[in-house]
Simulated scan of single mutants.
Amino acid sequence: MSADPFTTARHISLTTFRADGTGVATPVWFAQEDGKLYVWTPSDSWKVKRLRRDPRVVITVCDARGRVREGAHSAEGTAELLDDPSGVRELLARKYTWQFHLVDLQRKALRRTQPASGVVLTLAVTDA
């Protein structure tokens, strides 16, 4: 499956899985390039910890608060943590423009300098 149905979405609900198999959904900003989706998140976040153990993900189009509308597009896939998140950061800055820069400025003003992780999401291929 390509990432095309996600092209016009502003947010996705990224579901990662706990050790017991319970899914945990988090609304995130994302960018798309070359058929893959990219997410940028603090390296010490729980989603990163879960992805280190289990790379399975489910993504669903949602609003900024994580609310999923009935019939929203959803896909399964895998996630890979990237060593260098700078490319992901640039993709998000290009998509979210002033909003991304505002959040980044706020982070710097609050002296939140924790390392970030880039995550690349590869969607599973399904027969249509």
Rank of each mutant, 00 (worst) to 15 (best):
I59T: 01
P115G: 13
T60S: 05
D34Y: 04
V119W: 08
E76M: 10
H101V: 00
Q32G: 11
D127H: 13
A128Y: 12
A109V: 14
T22L: 07
V68N: 09
A75G: 10
E70K: 15
R10S: 14
D84H: 12
V119L: 08
R53C: 00
P5D: 01
K49T: 07
D4L: 12
V61M: 03
R107V: 11
A75I: 07
K108W: 10
S45N: 02
K49V: 04
Q106M: 12
Y38A: 04
M1E: 05
D83K: 13
V57N: 03
R50E: 00
V58Y: 00
D20Q: 08
G87A: 13
P5Y: 01
D54W: 04
S43M: 03
R112E: 11
L110K: 14
V28Q: 05
R52P: 04
Y96R: 11
Q106S: 09
D104C: 02
Q114C: 07
V119Q: 02
V61S: 07
V28Y: 03
V24G: 00
V103Q: 02
V68H: 08
L51F: 03
I12V: 09
F6W: 03
R50K: 05
G77A: 07
Q32K: 10
L92N: 00
F30V: 02
G118M: 13
F6Q: 00
T78L: 12
Q32P: 08
G66V: 13
P42A: 04
Y96S: 11
V48K: 05
E33R: 15
T16G: 09
P5W: 06
A31H: 06
K95V: 06
T41L: 03
D54C: 02
R67M: 09
Q106A: 13
E33L: 12
V88Q: 02
R56G: 02
S13A: 12
T7D: 10
T15I: 03
K49F: 02
L91E: 00
D4S: 09
D54S: 04
K49Y: 02
A75T: 10
R65K: 14
G23F: 13
S43W: 04
A124W: 01
V119Y: 06
G21Q: 08
S13E: 07
G23L: 12
L110S: 11
S45K: 00
A19V: 14
R89N: 15
V103F: 10
R89S: 15
D34N: 12
